[in-house]
């Protein structure tokens, strides 16, 4: 039973981890991108568009190759994610719009876009559910299935898709880049004090553009993971944005560190799945447990502000647009 819980929790982890890694990278450069839930929805939309296009090219899933399907979905998810980041940073960096308002508007847009693509494709393919399911299961045949596993280790870590491994790799890579490289130092400088960074000759706009675009592309993979590997193409409309808000919560929970983010994402997934697998003594407790991650995040938020420890704080210029003349 416990092994099954762990497995389910591991399975859910990347849905949070991609989102929080992308959002952390964006927030480190001083951008509070509340559009992350919307961008994750765009990732799902990208996956759907990719599968649809590939379907037209190869003509039916019987001829589909798993690798090409995978390349198509990931390419379109990354493309839509990066495009979202570009739009977001054009508004907040170049036009200096308010980041919170733009983020919320973009979330609304993303949810709508995802629903619309879902609806449009559904009406063109009669049995859309099986349509996506077929393709997504092709991708998953790249690896051993749950049933074929011989031991627990294989069951927990081996029987997962490419995106699953990608999520952990990217989280660690982002942590290393932010902590150990010159570029990472510049990104952090821009986020902490854009004025200072500008005076030191760092191009604030470029850094903010690039980090937001890369961060959004990573976040979009979170939505794609949920669609392709976790739910294998079976979708219920309106779930993705809930994961998105949890990903935003996770950024605070892990104190803006993506390596800690891995543990945080596993914990969130664990709390999320615990009532479902174990079946707590009463349905009431079940419900409360589902919302526990939000509560824990609030506690963390209060604690970091109450103890006022410098290393644990949010980036200094988080949410503040930079305009040189206003210094």
């Amino acid at each position: 039973m416990f092994i099954r819980l762990l497995k389910e929790a591991f399975r859910l982890t990347p849905a949070f981890l991609f989102g929080s890694t992308g959002e952390t990278l964006t927030e480190k450069s001083g951008h509070l991108n509340l559009g992350t839930p919307g961008i994750m929805c765009m990732g799902v939309a990208g996956g759907m568009i990719g599968i649809n296009l590939y379907d037209k090219i190869c003509g039916g899933f019987e001829n589909a190759s798993p690798v090409l399907t995978f390349i198509f979905v990931v390419f379109f998810a990354l493309l839509l994610g990066a495009l979202s980041g570009l739009i977001f940073s054009f508004f907040t960096v170049s036009l200096r719009c308010n980041q919170n308002v733009m983020g919320l508007a973009y979330t609304t847009f993303g949810i709508g876009f995802y629903g619309l693509i879902f609806k449009t494709i559904e009406s063109s393919h009669f049995q859309s559910i099986f349509f996506y399911n077929n393709y997504c299961s092709t991708i998953n045949t790249l690896f051993i299935s749950d049933q074929a596993c011989t031991n627990n280790f294989q069951y927990l870590f081996g029987a997962n898709g490419v995106l699953w491994f990608m999520s952990f790799t990217i989280a660690i890579a982002v942590a290393v880049v932010l902590k150990r490289t010159k570029v990472g130092l510049f990104v952090r400088a821009v986020g902490e004090n854009a004025g200072c960074a500008d005076a030191a000759g760092i191009n604030v706009s470029t850094y903010r553009y690039v980090t937001t675009i890369i961060g959004s592309a990573i976040s979009a993979l979170g939505g794609l993971y949920y669609f392709v590997e976790m739910n294998v193409g079976l979708l219920e409309f309106g779930n993705v944005d809930a994961y998105g808000w949890l990903a935003v919560a996770l950024v605070i929970f892990t104190l803006w560190k993506t390596d800690l983010g891995i543990l945080g994402a596993i914990l969130f997934a664990f709390l999320f799945k615990l009532p479902e697998i174990y079946g707590l003594p009463s349905p009431q407790l079940n419900m409360l447990f589902q919302y526990l991650p939000y509560f824990v995040t609030i506690i963390i938020l209060v604690m970091i502000s109450a103890f006022d420890k410098k290393a644990a704080q949010a980036p200094g210029n988080l949410g503040i647009p930079y305009f040189r003349e206003e210094r």
């Binding site: 508004f91 036009l95 200096r96 719009c97 308010n98 308002v101 733009m102 508007a105 973009y106 609304t108 847009f109 949810i111 709508g112 876009f113 995802y114 629903g115 619309l116 879902f118 609806k119 449009t120 009406s123 409309f237």
Partner: peptide, 23 residues
């Protein structure tokens, strides 16, 4: 026949356009 999600898109487009003109 576009589904309820279309409303989200129009609201977002409407608000984002006005936001752009704030500039």
């Amino acid at each position: 026949d576009l589904g309820s999600a279309f409303t989200n898109i129009t609201i977002a487009i409407f608000l984002i356009t006005i936001l752009a003109f704030e500039f």
